[in-house]
Write a protein that binds this DNA or RNA. Sequence first.
DNA 1: GCGTTTTGTGACGATCCGAGTCAACTACCG
DNA 2: CGGTAGTTGACTCGGATCGTCACAAAACGC
Lengths: 261, 261
Amino acid sequence: MSEGRGETYVDAVERLQKLGLTEYAARIYVALLQLGSGTAREIAEITSVPRTRVYDAVEALQERGFVDVSYASPKVFRPVSRETATRQFQLEYDDTIDELTDTLAALEPTDTTHEQTGVWTVSGREAVADRVLEFIGEAETEVVYMSVEQLLTDDIIQGLAAAADRDVAIQLAGISAATRREIEAAIPEAETFETLWEWSDTTAGRLVMVDRETILVSVLTNEESPAETAVWGSGEHNSLVVVLKAVFTWRINHADRFENE
Amino acid sequence: MSEGRGETYVDAVERLQKLGLTEYAARIYVALLQLGSGTAREIAEITSVPRTRVYDAVEALQERGFVDVSYASPKVFRPVSRETATRQFQLEYDDTIDELTDTLAALEPTDTTHEQTGVWTVSGREAVADRVLEFIGEAETEVVYMSVEQLLTDDIIQGLAAAADRDVAIQLAGISAATRREIEAAIPEAETFETLWEWSDTTAGRLVMVDRETILVSVLTNEESPAETAVWGSGEHNSLVVVLKAVFTWRINHADRFENE
DNA sequence: GCGTTTTGTGACGATCCGAGTCAACTACCG
DNA sequence: CGGTAGTTGACTCGGATCGTCACAAAACGC
């Protein structure tokens, strides 16, 4: 007999652990769902949790409201319904996140302007996208965006569209003729370029300039798992901005642009 | 100088820890929110995290997308906005809870009928209320509910009202004349009794009987923090049900009932 | 320049918690 | 009375986090 308890069993256990249950507790709860109810010995056999530890684990589950206990001899354990369990977690985390929002908001606010001197590094596709959206959201006059298509996600397009509605000039580069059509539908005001320049496909990421005073450049690092790493800077005299703006601006002025029909 | 960093600081740190950050990481992120940005030394002074450990902790934060780093000397760290951080958590937990719902649903379903032999124990006000609602939700012909008023919460009333709509007979006891009015408004079909008997106020909890085959009794244990503990049983021949049904039924038949006007 | 301070990195022991094992105590049954 | 099963508590182990230190590299003051 292999250890195999089926994909779903393992998945369920892992997810329950992510939500804060211990491994034993998670294994036992899932096993109980399948059993309907069971004694310590039955549980131990199925979950291969040491029988003598079933009691502690189940006690923890009971305290969190996931298991009922029948004080017979032997004790019998019964799980609450799946719906109850998930609702439990839902409530729990909604609460803590709400609390967190409140307490963080109550902290002394710092001025949000990033007239920073340094060059900042962000890693992780999500984190980079966040930063890009943040910048686009604060744009007042102009956004220049160039990236491989794979990074031109829906939320970016949405952000750009919102900016366009605020009368921010949008300049998009690196777009293939195919997707250009779609973009023009979503953001008719946008001006699209084929590409500002050819960058090596292997590490191509994005290049974003906002109001000519905030610039972000990213590459797709290829060490095993593909991740995105970006640097960004902000401010009239920020060194990264000064250097890249020069190149960037020159390119824009000399780029082949599509003519909107 | 006291260690005091203000209530909110401590609260925020605790909540971030609940959501999976280490203590160091949490302290540092909050401190950075207040600072706007800061070096390892500044952070160490404020948070009293050992300076040499700020680097590891911040690296972890960076990997999860909560902090940007400026690779100058000294390094400078910058937190993402509160909104970004909370959204991060929100997404994360919404995902895992969705996944959990799916995998739990995919598990072999067990018959939900609890024609059980044992007497089950539930502890915790929330858990008890859940069980009560579950039973009421499954009621087909009759629900008898008696409790101290403090335990007759809105969701219970709602559940009873829903049952009444399904043509389940509702019998409510232990209701003061005052709240009886409200109940009659919410559940006009309900029959209300003053009380089935006087129980000692100190430990009074609830008493629920559904379809004369599932019974739950609870007491409010008073060891320091007030908690609710209940036992329940189900099934025609369940011992708890057999015993209590006799008493219960007799009382109902002889109780002083209010006359609906 | 040159010595001092600051900054960054790595390593180390202490502590805590959960995982896993074991011995002992209790209750039931023949 | 002995055997079996149920239950509890104590113990070791391993990993993660906390807290401290030593040391090299870089920055700074004079």
